[in-house]
């Protein structure tokens, strides 16, 4: 007993140091697994509040370019709407089909208040939370393409796992045919992500457009991601293709969060298959 007390006396700083290092390591490992970090993230009230105060000011500097992007998107959507009108006018009889009115996705808007793209595991913070109905595993996009998946929500803020995160994996496919693979990031260039596990017989050319595949319960089908810039001709294990993102991930403003209304249904279906 005496020796034990002596031991603690002698190494008390070292033991304290080890304890704190152990806590830091535990937090680090927790942070790397999706949705486990409950406390140490920027979506809490203090850091979220401070970030949104700073974003309030810095948003003014990009107002002009944001307006332009908004106008471009509006033009695009108006054109789509015009096409839709023609289609409905050409129908000679009114078909009432209840399933057509079944809405599958609902969109919410949010602002990015904190962005990071230079690390290997990047996260964003947006200024909407549980109060506005945000949950984990919802898609985050903007008019140019995908951004990430929501990770952790507090009442007013949500953390988003960026596609520029070594842990993220998103179902993606070629736009002109239906071959699909998964989208990963190797942590090097923040403009370039990798499409892996795409079948070898898929005809891929430089310049092909990549979009989301709709095989997950998170992203709707057909949201743009980027274009192919490098095709791997040698036979490697995972057949990796470099994709340049349409989004400039270092310069993001307002975003949309997509909620899948059928998610619960899909998940219960998938779970029963496993049993």
């Amino acid at each position: 007993m005496q020796q034990l007390i002596y031991f603690f006396q002698k190494f008390k700083y070292f033991l304290f140091f080890l304890l704190l290092q152990f806590i830091a390591l535990a937090i680090t490992f927790n942070n790397l697994s999706f949705q486990k970090s409950k406390f140490v993230n920027s979506a809490n009230a203090i850091s979220g509040g401070l970030y949104s105060q700073v974003a309030n000011i810095s948003d003014y500097f990009s107002l002009k370019s944001e307006n332009k992007i908004l106008l471009e998107e509006n033009t695009h959507l108006r054109n789509l709407l015009e096409l839709k009108n023609i289609v409905s006018l050409n129908k000679d009889s009114a078909i009432v089909d209840a399933t057509l009115y079944f809405q599958k996705y609902t969109f919410l808007n949010a602002d990015i208040i904190k962005n990071s793209y230079a690390n290997a595991f990047n996260f964003l913070t947006i200024n909407k939370g549980k109060k506005q109905g945000l949950q984990r595993e919802m898609a985050v996009i903007n008019s140019k393409g995908i951004i990430g998946i929501t990770d952790n929500s507090t009442s007013n803020y949500t953390r988003v796992q960026s596609i520029l995160n070594k842990n993220s994996s998103i179902n993606a496919r070629l736009k002109n045919n239906r071959y699909f693979g998964s989208l990963k990031w190797n942590g090097e260039n923040y403009n370039v992500v990798q499409l892996i596990d795409i079948p070898r017989q898929a005809p891929i050319k430089v310049g092909d457009t990549i979009e989301t595949g709709g095989r997950s319960a998170i992203f709707p089908e057909g949201i743009l991601i980027g274009s192919v810039i490098k095709v791997n001709n040698t036979s490697t294990v995972n057949n990796s293709i470099d994709v340049k993102l349409f989004n400039d991930m270092s310069n993001l403003g307002p975003v949309y969060v997509i909620k899948n209304l059928h998610k619960l249904e899909l998940e219960t279906l998938e779970n029963t298959n496993n049993e």
């Binding site: 704190l20 942070n31 140490v40 595991f121």
Partner: peptide, 24 residues
């Protein structure tokens, strides 16, 4: 001193979503 250094690192980790690497 050790506690304050740890808290400074942890504070930075909270803001930059980096787990506990700054604290470590």
């Amino acid at each position: 001193f050790l506690l304050l250094a740890f808290l400074l690192g942890l504070g930075l980790d909270i803001f930059s979503d980096s787990g506990g690497i700054h604290a470590f």
